Amino acid sequence: SAAQAIRQRNQVADITLISAESAYPYYRPALSDLIVKDVTEQEFNLNPEAWYEQNNIQIILNTVVQGVNATDRVVNLGNKTQLAYDKLILATGSSNFIPRLKGIEATGVFSIKEKEDALALRAYAEGKDRAVIIGGGVLGLEAADALQELGLSVTVVEAMDRIMPRQLDPSASEFMSFILNNKGVDLRTGSSVEEILTKDGVVTGVKICQDVISADIVVVSVGVRANVEVARSAGLTINRGIVVNENMQTSNPHIYACGDVAEFEGVATNLWAPAIEQGKVAGKHAVGDVATFANKVEPLSLIAFGTEMFAVGTYPLENIEQYQILMNADPKTGNFKKLYFDRDRLVYGVLFKDITKANVLLNGIRQGHSCYTIMNKLFV
Protein backbone atom coordinates (compact mmCIF):
# COMPACT_ATOMS: atom_id res chain seq x y z
CA SER A 1 0.00 0.00 0.00
CA ALA A 2 2.95 2.35 0.63
CA ALA A 3 4.39 1.86 -2.86
CA GLN A 4 0.98 2.35 -4.42
CA ALA A 5 0.40 5.55 -2.45
CA ILE A 6 3.79 6.90 -3.53
CA ARG A 7 3.27 6.14 -7.21
CA GLN A 8 -0.19 7.71 -7.23
CA ARG A 9 1.39 10.99 -6.11
CA ASN A 10 4.80 10.86 -7.73
CA GLN A 11 5.26 9.38 -11.20
CA VAL A 12 9.05 9.68 -11.37
CA ALA A 13 10.40 8.61 -7.98
CA ASP A 14 12.47 5.42 -7.94
CA ILE A 15 10.63 2.82 -5.85
CA THR A 16 12.26 -0.44 -4.78
CA LEU A 17 10.52 -3.19 -2.81
CA ILE A 18 12.72 -5.74 -1.04
CA SER A 19 11.36 -9.03 0.31
CA ALA A 20 12.98 -12.08 1.84
CA GLU A 21 10.13 -14.18 0.43
CA SER A 22 9.98 -15.66 -3.06
CA ALA A 23 6.38 -14.56 -3.63
CA TYR A 24 5.06 -11.21 -4.78
CA PRO A 25 3.13 -9.29 -2.06
CA TYR A 26 -0.03 -11.19 -1.17
CA TYR A 27 -3.12 -11.12 1.03
CA ARG A 28 -1.66 -12.58 4.21
CA PRO A 29 -4.96 -13.12 6.12
CA ALA A 30 -5.86 -15.80 3.55
CA LEU A 31 -2.87 -18.02 4.36
CA SER A 32 -5.03 -20.70 5.96
CA ASP A 33 -6.94 -21.02 2.67
CA LEU A 34 -3.76 -22.31 1.03
CA ILE A 35 -3.71 -25.27 3.39
CA VAL A 36 -6.95 -26.68 2.01
CA LYS A 37 -7.43 -25.44 -1.53
CA ASP A 38 -5.74 -24.18 -4.66
CA VAL A 39 -5.73 -20.40 -4.81
CA THR A 40 -4.63 -18.66 -7.99
CA GLU A 41 -2.06 -15.89 -7.86
CA GLN A 42 -4.71 -13.57 -9.26
CA GLU A 43 -6.89 -14.30 -6.22
CA PHE A 44 -4.07 -14.27 -3.68
CA ASN A 45 -1.64 -11.55 -4.78
CA LEU A 46 -2.32 -7.92 -3.94
CA ASN A 47 -1.47 -6.89 -7.50
CA PRO A 48 -0.68 -8.77 -10.72
CA GLU A 49 3.05 -9.17 -11.35
CA ALA A 50 2.72 -6.93 -14.41
CA TRP A 51 1.44 -4.10 -12.21
CA TYR A 52 4.90 -3.55 -10.73
CA GLU A 53 6.50 -3.20 -14.16
CA GLN A 54 3.68 -0.98 -15.40
CA ASN A 55 4.19 1.33 -12.42
CA ASN A 56 7.98 1.26 -12.68
CA ILE A 57 8.39 -0.37 -9.28
CA GLN A 58 11.45 -2.56 -8.90
CA ILE A 59 10.84 -5.61 -6.74
CA ILE A 60 13.70 -7.67 -5.31
CA LEU A 61 12.66 -11.08 -3.94
CA ASN A 62 14.56 -13.74 -1.98
CA THR A 63 16.74 -11.03 -0.48
CA VAL A 64 17.37 -10.35 3.19
CA VAL A 65 18.11 -6.85 4.47
CA GLN A 66 21.03 -7.18 6.84
CA GLY A 67 20.97 -3.66 8.19
CA VAL A 68 20.62 0.06 7.58
CA ASN A 69 23.29 2.74 7.75
CA ALA A 70 21.05 5.64 8.71
CA THR A 71 23.90 8.16 8.62
CA ASP A 72 24.76 7.45 4.98
CA ARG A 73 21.15 6.47 4.13
CA VAL A 74 22.14 3.09 2.77
CA VAL A 75 20.41 -0.30 3.00
CA ASN A 76 22.78 -3.27 3.24
CA LEU A 77 21.47 -6.38 1.50
CA GLY A 78 22.36 -9.99 2.19
CA ASN A 79 23.92 -10.37 -1.25
CA LYS A 80 26.61 -7.83 -0.24
CA THR A 81 25.09 -5.02 -2.30
CA GLN A 82 23.88 -1.65 -1.07
CA LEU A 83 20.94 0.56 -1.99
CA ALA A 84 20.88 4.28 -1.28
CA TYR A 85 17.62 5.93 -0.24
CA ASP A 86 16.10 9.34 0.33
CA LYS A 87 13.18 7.89 2.28
CA LEU A 88 12.99 4.39 3.73
CA ILE A 89 9.79 2.59 4.75
CA LEU A 90 10.16 -0.44 7.01
CA ALA A 91 7.34 -2.97 6.71
CA THR A 92 9.27 -5.91 8.13
CA GLY A 93 6.23 -7.38 9.86
CA SER A 94 6.41 -9.89 12.67
CA SER A 95 7.53 -13.45 13.26
CA ASN A 96 5.74 -16.21 15.11
CA PHE A 97 6.98 -16.79 18.63
CA ILE A 98 8.46 -20.28 18.87
CA PRO A 99 8.62 -21.68 22.42
CA ARG A 100 11.71 -23.51 23.59
CA LEU A 101 10.37 -27.04 23.68
CA LYS A 102 12.22 -30.28 23.31
CA GLY A 103 11.42 -31.57 19.83
CA ILE A 104 10.44 -28.16 18.43
CA GLU A 105 12.77 -28.60 15.43
CA ALA A 106 11.46 -32.04 14.49
CA THR A 107 10.02 -32.85 11.09
CA GLY A 108 6.27 -32.33 11.27
CA VAL A 109 6.37 -29.14 13.37
CA PHE A 110 4.98 -26.09 11.57
CA SER A 111 4.29 -22.43 12.26
CA ILE A 112 2.31 -20.53 9.63
CA LYS A 113 3.50 -17.04 8.81
CA GLU A 114 4.34 -17.07 5.11
CA LYS A 115 2.95 -18.56 1.91
CA GLU A 116 5.61 -21.26 1.79
CA ASP A 117 4.71 -22.34 5.35
CA ALA A 118 1.08 -22.97 4.39
CA LEU A 119 2.02 -24.84 1.21
CA ALA A 120 4.56 -26.97 3.08
CA LEU A 121 1.97 -27.91 5.71
CA ARG A 122 -0.55 -28.85 3.04
CA ALA A 123 1.95 -31.11 1.30
CA TYR A 124 3.08 -32.75 4.54
CA ALA A 125 -0.49 -33.33 5.75
CA GLU A 126 -1.26 -35.67 2.86
CA GLY A 127 -1.77 -39.15 4.27
CA LYS A 128 -1.45 -37.99 7.89
CA ASP A 129 -4.08 -38.72 10.54
CA ARG A 130 -3.61 -36.57 13.64
CA ALA A 131 -2.66 -32.96 14.36
CA VAL A 132 -2.08 -30.97 17.53
CA ILE A 133 -2.43 -27.20 17.48
CA ILE A 134 -0.55 -25.36 20.22
CA GLY A 135 -2.50 -22.16 20.81
CA GLY A 136 -6.24 -21.49 20.87
CA GLY A 137 -6.27 -18.04 19.28
CA VAL A 138 -7.65 -17.04 15.89
CA LEU A 139 -4.70 -18.28 13.84
CA GLY A 140 -4.53 -21.54 15.75
CA LEU A 141 -8.24 -22.20 15.19
CA GLU A 142 -7.93 -21.36 11.49
CA ALA A 143 -5.15 -23.93 11.18
CA ALA A 144 -7.19 -26.47 13.14
CA ASP A 145 -10.18 -25.95 10.86
CA ALA A 146 -8.04 -26.31 7.74
CA LEU A 147 -6.41 -29.54 8.91
CA GLN A 148 -9.74 -31.01 9.96
CA GLU A 149 -11.06 -30.18 6.50
CA LEU A 150 -8.16 -32.20 5.09
CA GLY A 151 -9.41 -35.17 7.11
CA LEU A 152 -7.13 -35.09 10.14
CA SER A 153 -8.36 -35.45 13.70
CA VAL A 154 -7.43 -32.29 15.58
CA THR A 155 -6.52 -31.45 19.17
CA VAL A 156 -6.21 -27.81 20.25
CA VAL A 157 -4.07 -27.13 23.32
CA GLU A 158 -4.47 -23.74 25.02
CA ALA A 159 -2.45 -22.75 28.09
CA MET A 160 -5.13 -20.37 29.36
CA ASP A 161 -8.31 -21.71 30.93
CA ARG A 162 -10.35 -20.97 27.79
CA ILE A 163 -9.85 -20.40 24.07
CA MET A 164 -9.40 -16.96 22.52
CA PRO A 165 -8.96 -15.42 25.99
CA ARG A 166 -7.79 -12.06 24.64
CA GLN A 167 -10.62 -11.63 22.15
CA LEU A 168 -13.70 -13.22 23.73
CA ASP A 169 -15.35 -12.78 27.09
CA PRO A 170 -15.83 -16.01 29.10
CA SER A 171 -19.35 -16.82 27.87
CA ALA A 172 -18.45 -16.19 24.22
CA SER A 173 -15.36 -18.34 24.67
CA GLU A 174 -17.54 -21.08 26.14
CA PHE A 175 -19.89 -20.81 23.16
CA MET A 176 -16.94 -21.19 20.77
CA SER A 177 -15.79 -24.24 22.73
CA PHE A 178 -19.28 -25.70 22.34
CA ILE A 179 -18.99 -25.27 18.56
CA LEU A 180 -15.56 -26.91 18.48
CA ASN A 181 -16.69 -29.86 20.57
CA ASN A 182 -19.68 -30.40 18.28
CA LYS A 183 -17.29 -30.46 15.33
CA GLY A 184 -15.22 -33.19 16.95
CA VAL A 185 -12.26 -31.09 18.06
CA ASP A 186 -10.43 -32.37 21.14
CA LEU A 187 -10.04 -29.18 23.17
CA ARG A 188 -7.51 -29.05 26.02
CA THR A 189 -7.60 -25.74 27.92
CA GLY A 190 -5.53 -24.85 30.95
CA SER A 191 -2.84 -27.15 29.58
CA SER A 192 0.67 -26.55 28.31
CA VAL A 193 2.71 -28.73 26.01
CA GLU A 194 5.81 -29.80 27.91
CA GLU A 195 7.53 -31.65 25.10
CA ILE A 196 7.08 -32.58 21.45
CA LEU A 197 7.67 -36.30 21.21
CA THR A 198 9.66 -37.65 18.28
CA LYS A 199 11.07 -40.79 16.76
CA ASP A 200 14.06 -40.53 14.45
CA GLY A 201 13.54 -36.78 14.28
CA VAL A 202 9.88 -37.02 13.24
CA VAL A 203 6.89 -35.91 15.34
CA THR A 204 4.94 -38.68 17.08
CA GLY A 205 2.98 -36.67 19.65
CA VAL A 206 3.07 -34.16 22.48
CA LYS A 207 3.32 -34.51 26.24
CA ILE A 208 0.89 -32.59 28.44
CA CYS A 209 1.32 -33.10 32.18
CA GLN A 210 0.91 -36.86 32.57
CA ASP A 211 -0.91 -37.26 29.27
CA VAL A 212 0.46 -38.07 25.83
CA ILE A 213 -1.42 -37.07 22.67
CA SER A 214 -0.42 -38.86 19.49
CA ALA A 215 0.21 -36.60 16.51
CA ASP A 216 1.73 -36.66 13.05
CA ILE A 217 1.71 -32.85 12.85
CA VAL A 218 2.19 -30.09 15.42
CA VAL A 219 1.28 -26.50 14.53
CA VAL A 220 2.60 -23.78 16.84
CA SER A 221 0.48 -20.62 17.10
CA VAL A 222 1.25 -18.81 20.35
CA GLY A 223 1.70 -15.19 19.34
CA VAL A 224 4.04 -12.98 17.33
CA ARG A 225 7.01 -10.69 17.88
CA ALA A 226 7.79 -7.61 15.78
CA ASN A 227 10.78 -7.94 13.44
CA VAL A 228 12.81 -5.02 14.75
CA GLU A 229 16.35 -6.17 13.89
CA VAL A 230 16.70 -3.89 10.87
CA ALA A 231 15.31 -0.96 12.85
CA ARG A 232 17.78 -1.65 15.64
CA SER A 233 20.67 -1.53 13.17
CA ALA A 234 19.46 1.93 12.13
CA GLY A 235 19.43 3.14 15.74
CA LEU A 236 15.67 3.73 15.82
CA THR A 237 13.60 3.98 18.99
CA ILE A 238 12.03 0.60 19.73
CA ASN A 239 9.54 -0.52 22.34
CA ARG A 240 7.41 -3.57 21.50
CA GLY A 241 7.65 -2.35 17.91
CA ILE A 242 9.26 0.55 16.08
CA VAL A 243 7.91 3.70 17.70
CA VAL A 244 6.28 6.00 15.12
CA ASN A 245 4.37 9.27 15.11
CA GLU A 246 1.04 10.02 13.41
CA ASN A 247 2.84 10.35 10.05
CA MET A 248 4.40 6.90 10.57
CA GLN A 249 7.82 8.51 10.93
CA THR A 250 10.26 6.82 13.26
CA SER A 251 12.77 8.60 15.51
CA ASN A 252 14.69 9.22 12.26
CA PRO A 253 12.58 11.54 10.05
CA HIS A 254 13.89 9.88 6.87
CA ILE A 255 12.68 6.43 7.97
CA TYR A 256 9.06 5.30 8.29
CA ALA A 257 7.53 2.10 9.66
CA CYS A 258 4.13 0.53 9.14
CA GLY A 259 2.22 -2.68 9.73
CA ASP A 260 2.97 -5.32 12.36
CA VAL A 261 6.38 -3.84 13.11
CA ALA A 262 5.08 -0.34 13.93
CA GLU A 263 3.93 0.92 17.33
CA PHE A 264 1.84 4.08 17.50
CA GLU A 265 0.76 5.56 20.82
CA GLY A 266 1.67 2.31 22.54
CA VAL A 267 -0.43 0.18 20.18
CA ALA A 268 0.86 -2.47 17.78
CA THR A 269 -2.30 -3.80 16.17
CA ASN A 270 -1.07 -6.82 14.17
CA LEU A 271 -4.21 -6.51 12.04
CA TRP A 272 -4.50 -6.21 8.27
CA ALA A 273 -6.77 -3.15 7.90
CA PRO A 274 -4.72 -0.73 10.04
CA ALA A 275 -1.51 -2.08 8.48
CA ILE A 276 -2.78 -1.13 5.02
CA GLU A 277 -3.82 2.30 6.26
CA GLN A 278 -0.44 2.86 7.90
CA GLY A 279 1.30 1.96 4.65
CA LYS A 280 -0.77 4.52 2.76
CA VAL A 281 0.02 7.22 5.32
CA ALA A 282 3.74 6.43 5.22
CA GLY A 283 3.81 6.50 1.42
CA LYS A 284 1.87 9.75 1.17
CA HIS A 285 3.95 11.53 3.77
CA ALA A 286 7.22 10.27 2.30
CA VAL A 287 6.50 12.19 -0.93
CA GLY A 288 5.41 15.35 0.83
CA ASP A 289 1.66 14.95 1.23
CA VAL A 290 -0.19 15.71 4.43
CA ALA A 291 -1.25 12.36 5.88
CA THR A 292 -1.88 11.16 9.42
CA PHE A 293 -2.85 7.91 11.09
CA ALA A 294 -5.15 7.54 14.09
CA ASN A 295 -5.75 4.41 16.13
CA LYS A 296 -9.30 3.11 15.92
CA VAL A 297 -11.11 0.27 17.58
CA GLU A 298 -10.54 -2.58 15.15
CA PRO A 299 -12.66 -5.73 14.84
CA LEU A 300 -11.50 -9.32 14.84
CA SER A 301 -13.19 -11.96 12.72
CA LEU A 302 -12.98 -15.71 12.31
CA ILE A 303 -14.53 -18.04 9.75
CA ALA A 304 -14.06 -21.64 10.83
CA PHE A 305 -15.89 -24.80 11.87
CA GLY A 306 -19.08 -23.81 10.10
CA THR A 307 -19.50 -20.50 11.88
CA GLU A 308 -18.46 -16.88 11.63
CA MET A 309 -17.34 -14.80 14.59
CA PHE A 310 -17.04 -11.02 14.83
CA ALA A 311 -15.77 -9.32 17.99
CA VAL A 312 -14.88 -5.70 18.65
CA GLY A 313 -14.02 -3.57 21.65
CA THR A 314 -12.60 -4.45 25.06
CA TYR A 315 -14.56 -6.52 27.51
CA PRO A 316 -14.14 -5.69 31.21
CA LEU A 317 -11.73 -7.79 33.23
CA GLU A 318 -13.02 -6.56 36.59
CA ASN A 319 -15.99 -4.81 38.18
CA ILE A 320 -18.27 -6.54 35.68
CA GLU A 321 -21.27 -5.80 37.91
CA GLN A 322 -20.93 -2.14 36.91
CA TYR A 323 -21.65 -2.95 33.27
CA GLN A 324 -24.97 -3.47 31.59
CA ILE A 325 -24.97 -6.67 29.54
CA LEU A 326 -27.28 -7.81 26.76
CA MET A 327 -27.00 -11.41 25.61
CA ASN A 328 -28.86 -13.80 23.34
CA ALA A 329 -27.50 -17.31 22.77
CA ASP A 330 -29.11 -20.12 20.79
CA PRO A 331 -26.96 -23.27 20.67
CA LYS A 332 -29.40 -24.95 18.27
CA THR A 333 -28.95 -22.35 15.53
CA GLY A 334 -25.43 -21.34 16.55
CA ASN A 335 -26.42 -17.68 16.86
CA PHE A 336 -24.92 -15.67 19.70
CA LYS A 337 -24.93 -11.97 20.55
CA LYS A 338 -23.45 -10.28 23.58
CA LEU A 339 -22.91 -6.59 24.30
CA TYR A 340 -21.31 -4.71 27.19
CA PHE A 341 -22.25 -1.13 28.10
CA ASP A 342 -20.28 1.16 30.39
CA ARG A 343 -22.59 3.91 31.69
CA ASP A 344 -24.87 3.35 28.71
CA ARG A 345 -22.00 3.46 26.21
CA LEU A 346 -21.32 0.38 24.08
CA VAL A 347 -17.75 -0.83 24.74
CA TYR A 348 -17.65 -4.48 23.62
CA GLY A 349 -19.66 -6.80 21.44
CA VAL A 350 -19.41 -10.24 19.87
CA LEU A 351 -21.52 -12.01 17.25
CA PHE A 352 -21.56 -15.65 16.14
CA LYS A 353 -23.08 -17.25 13.04
CA ASP A 354 -25.27 -14.37 11.85
CA ILE A 355 -22.86 -11.46 11.46
CA THR A 356 -24.86 -9.54 8.86
CA LYS A 357 -25.03 -6.61 11.27
CA ALA A 358 -21.31 -6.58 12.03
CA ASN A 359 -20.94 -3.04 10.71
CA VAL A 360 -23.77 -1.90 12.97
CA LEU A 361 -21.85 -3.30 15.93
CA LEU A 362 -18.55 -1.80 14.77
CA ASN A 363 -20.05 1.66 14.29
CA GLY A 364 -21.84 1.34 17.61
CA ILE A 365 -18.54 0.70 19.38
CA ARG A 366 -16.70 3.49 17.59
CA GLN A 367 -19.51 5.98 18.20
CA GLY A 368 -20.37 4.81 21.71
CA HIS A 369 -24.03 4.08 21.04
CA SER A 370 -26.44 3.77 23.93
CA CYS A 371 -28.16 0.56 24.95
CA TYR A 372 -31.49 1.72 23.53
CA THR A 373 -29.97 2.74 20.18
CA ILE A 374 -28.00 -0.43 19.55
CA MET A 375 -30.63 -2.79 20.97
CA ASN A 376 -33.15 -1.66 18.36
CA LYS A 377 -30.59 -2.33 15.63
CA LEU A 378 -29.14 -5.65 16.79
CA PHE A 379 -31.88 -7.32 18.82
CA VAL A 380 -34.87 -7.01 16.50
Rank of each mutant, 00 (worst) to 15 (best):
F264G: 01
R188H: 12
L302I: 05
K280F: 11
V243G: 03
E49P: 11
L351E: 08
A123K: 12
I60E: 06
N182C: 04
V261F: 00
D211K: 13
A23D: 14
I276P: 03
A2N: 08
V281N: 00
E321A: 15
A146M: 06
T40M: 12
S1Q: 07
K338H: 01
L271M: 14
E105D: 07
V12Q: 15
M309Q: 05
G368Q: 02
V154C: 10
N62T: 00
P29G: 02
R162H: 08
N62M: 01
V65G: 01
Y24S: 14
M160S: 10
N252Y: 12
G137M: 10
R232Q: 15
K377I: 09
F264C: 05
A120M: 07
S22T: 15
L339C: 00
G201N: 03
V132Q: 04
L34Y: 06
A84S: 15
A3V: 03
N252D: 13
I134M: 13
V203N: 07
F305P: 11
H254S: 14
V218G: 12
Q249W: 13
S173Q: 04
P170D: 12
Q11K: 15
P253R: 01
K199S: 14
A146V: 08
I57K: 10
R9D: 06
T92S: 07
S1G: 12
P48M: 07
A275L: 12
